[in-house]
Amino acid sequence: MQVPAPFEYVRASSVGEAIDLLERLGPEARLVAGGHSLLPMMKLRLATPEHLIDINPLAGELGDVREEGGEVRIGAMTRHRDVLESELLVRRFPIMRDAERRIADPPVRNRGTIGGALCQADPSEDLSAVCAALKASVVIRGRGGDRVLDMVAFHRGPYETAVGDAEMLVEVRVPVRPHGGSAYEKVERRAGDWAIAAAGAALWLDGATVADAGIALSAVNPRGVRCERAEQALVGRPPSEEAFAEAAALAAEDCDPIADQRGSAEYKRHLARELTHRALRRAAERTLAS
């Protein structure tokens, strides 16, 4: 039987209370949202917090998806299922549904949250790449107030984010920009598994040329998820197959996959290139259709 090591359990009924508890209980306290990353880690003793602060009572306060001030704001406690089924997100950012429908399975998606996924920062996790491709920002709250960071500043590497000891992620903000399209492509060993490699792409057009591009990879780059050189290669050019092939080659060149049971580094690099190309192609089709 796998059970976590002993800990003290406390429930927070507001964001303010959660932050107070984090401060009072110190660095050995952890927040638990859906628990579908943290509890498995605790069962394996890869995480052994002394205090677990259950923030599920905040699902109402932090579980909203709404458009406001030129952004779509997604509460950190929004569960995967609600991200998947949000009409607003499907309309604005189809990349979200592409990714969500292939994250784990329905019962897991009923519990896991977008905030939990981003804070866990698993190197094979999908939503960090989705948010990075969309050039989203995250809101981190502490006693001193809110900090708003972009994904590059937030996502520091495997299992590491900019969230401090007595802070919590409360919201993801995705800018709504005109003439945009987005897509996510993933290859996994079987349905619901972690990615062998995955690529997210977003394009924003200005007339016949690319005004801005977002490209991010999952599972193939421990240093970060954004591919800035590939993005830059597209700006100012028509959204053509030739440009996409060039950007995909750069993304593959700049990633740093490791060989493991999911495949060789060479195979993953091949996937990074092919999936980036496909994601760009589909993002462009959606941009033109919007």
Binding site: Q2, Y9, G35, H36, L39, P40, L52, R81, N110, R111
Partner: peptide, 22 residues
């Protein structure tokens, strides 16, 4: 390990893997 789903119960009407919920 929240893979097999044998432990699914409904929580407020939604399927949840009860091996991965305290």
């Amino acid at each position: 390990t929240s893979n097999c789903g044998a432990c699914v119960v409904l929580v407020d009407g939604e399927p949840v893997k009860s091996c991965t919920m305290l």
